[in-house]
Design a protein around this nucleic acid. Structure first.
Length: 572
DNA sequence: GTAGGGTTAG
């Protein structure tokens, strides 16, 4: 089509700016932005007087590709040329700012909008609303959700449209304010039938559920989708549903969604593979890979990344190595930094440190922090002090120590009972000003989510929780649990106020989960960091004396505790 | 006549 249009265009004797514009946007919309830019350049060479449509089209093209800096550059040129931006231009400029989190330029655009573009016509808020929506999105994506919310609130509820709601909900969902996202989504549904969420809105809400492992809420949204006729826009939402179910611990439901899809894309397949990977179902994932090939999807770099992740978390080391080799031999996919990091993770997790180091040294690019952190965490699992120190030194050299790497090193020393070194790491951490993130666990109860920090006594039922926990600890001690207090595996993750091993956030969450559990129904717990070794051990014992399966998601993977064993089989 | 906002997997 565009080819034919181009022929006609070239045969035209007189080309006005409108026909040039049509061609620029034609190429841009056909996904051939490079050629659109070529025409744009040609327009300038031939001294065609560019109008607001030309400029807006190019800015939009950059913004849609996520190239915010280029979009802003063109916007600047536009202003220098004296062309006057309008609502359409600003919407694209704001989208460009949002894509690169350019708060300063976003604010400048905000000022410009106030001075030159917004009408403040109360009888016709429609034009302004486009810009306001763009501003809300921009502020949210620049991590200024409070400012975004002020703008959202400043729009009269009856003037808001579905995008106004979506950008605010999505802004919360993407910046760790998932509870606010879900609160706002509920509010939106209460607005009556006038404000129906669309596929975009629902994806944002499902994303928030996935982060929180809010299975109950996610199921309600699923039901809402089925009740409300979204047949024509299912693909995105179904992909989100797969992710939501698997991150909420219900891998079966994730599979059912996948199986019932009318159409699937590569995201659908990758989501399912990731789901099996997180839960440690390596064999299942390999089967999915075969189906995927049969369905005509060719594995790409991302597929292989996920496959390596799957192998790493299922202890399928040799299979992982084979995948890595077949990547370029059979599929001509070049391994990139992330693939190497994943291989180091795989080998380190399995304790094959010689091979892991060989891998690091064979990398065609400089190893970055993620590679050393992968190695360091392998050393943590297997108590390899020497190599751990080496990896930590590399991290220090790169100047990219974070709270996680300090914690890993400290735990390696603690495991080796080298308390002086533990103390040294801690003071180093204080000295360098690295703040550790607070460990935090939450559990889904019937009346919503209960969140716990270490030593947390803020829950109304804290006395019952602590009593139950003490009782559980007594009972599992009787069947062989040995707390790691004597040798005090001081988990820097959680330890701040002294020796609070028995008051770790995940233990409190579990006690509360048991308190409110229904017999036979799994208890779902989520932790923002990795589960602590002693807690993992305690959970394993506790699963022997309660009827419920314990499904724990930590920052690394899922652990299913049942009858005295954990599904991770040590690969965490 | 020609330009425009918000979504998913690692």
């Amino acid at each position: 089509m565009i080819q034919q249009a181009n022929k006609v265009f070239e045969s035209m004797e007189v080309k006005d700016v409108v026909s040039w514009n049509a061609m620029v946007t034609g190429y841009s919309q056909a996904g051939r932005f490079e050629e659109a830019l070529g025409l744009f350049e040609k327009m300038r060479e031939e001294k065609i007087e560019l109008d607001v449509v030309t400029w807006s089209a190019v800015i939009a093209g950059y913004a849609q590709k996520g190239h915010g800096y280029e979009a802003l550059g063109v916007f600047r040129q536009m202003q220098l040329c004296g062309s006057k931006p309008n609502v359409v231009t600003l919407v694209s400029v704001l989208s460009g700012c949002a894509s690169i989190a350019a708060l300063l330029q976003g604010k400048e655009t905000h000022c410009y909008a106030i001075k030159c573009v917004l009408n403040y016509d109360w009888n016709d808020p429609g034009e302004d609303l486009m810009v306001i929506n763009g501003l809300i999105d921009m502020y949210a994506k620049c991590k200024s959700t409070n400012v975004a919310r002020l703008m959202f609130d400043s729009v009269a509820p009856s003037d808001r449209n579905v995008v106004t709601w979506t950008v605010m909900i999505g802004g919360y969902a993407q910046h760790g304010e998932e509870n606010d996202a879900l609160k706002l989504f509920s509010e939106m549904l209460q607005e009556g039938n006038s404000m129906k969420p669309n596929a975009f809105t629902i994806c944002c809400a499902l994303m928030a559920c996935a982060h929180l492992a809010a299975l109950r809420f996610g199921k309600q949204i699923h039901a809402y989708i089925l009740r409300n006729r979204y047949e024509s826009v299912m693909l995105f939402m179904e992909n989100c549903l797969i992710d939501m179910y698997s991150k909420s611990g219900d891998i079966h439901a994730a599979r059912v969604v996948f199986d019932n899809m009318q159409h699937r894309n590569s995201v659908s397949w990758t989501s399912l593979l990731t789901a099996y990977g997180m839960h440690g179902y390596g064999e299942e994932a390999i089967k999915v890979l075969d189906y995927m090939r049969v369905a005509g999807f060719v594995p790409d770099g991302i597929t292989f990344l996920v496959l390596l992740y799957v192998c790493s978390h299922s202890g399928m080391v040799d299979q992982g190595i084979r995948f890595f080799e077949s990547m370029h031999t059979e599929y001509s996919v070049t391994p990139e930094l992330d693939h190497y990091a994943c291989m180091v993770d795989l080998l380190g997790r399995a304790g094959r440190f010689g091979q892991a180091l060989e891998f690091v040294h064979s990398m065609p690019m400089e190893p970055t922090a993620i590679v050393w952190i992968a190695l360091l965490s392998g050393c943590r699992i297997h108590g390899n002090v020497e190599l751990g120190e080496y990896a930590a030194a590399q991290l220090q050299e790169l100047g990219s120590e974070n709270d996680g790497s300090y914690t890993l090193l400290s735990n390696i020393y603690a495991n080796a009972r080298r308390w002086r070194d533990v103390a040294r790491v801690r003071s180093l951490m204080k000295y360098s000003g690295v703040k550790k993130r607070a460990g935090c666990s939450w559990v889904q109860g019937k009346k919503g989510t209960a969140t716990f920090y270490v030593g947390d006594r803020s829950h109304p039922q804290f006395e019952q929780i602590y009593k139950l926990l003490a009782d559980l600890i007594q009972r599992i001690k009787a069947i062989g649990y040995v707390p790691e207090t004597n040798c005090a595996l001081h988990d820097v993750d959680d330890e701040e106020k002294g020796d609070l091993l028995f008051e770790h956030s995940e233990k409190l969450a579990l006690a509360y989960g048991i308190l409110v559990s229904t017999p036979g129904v799994p208890i779902h717990i989520t932790k923002n960091l990795r589960v602590c070794t002693d807690c993992h051990n305690a959970f394993t014992y506790i699963s022997m004396i309660i009827d419920n399966e314990i499904i724990l998601r930590d920052s690394s993977r899922f652990h299913h505790f049942k009858s005295g064993s954990c599904s991770c089989r040590g690969y965490w």
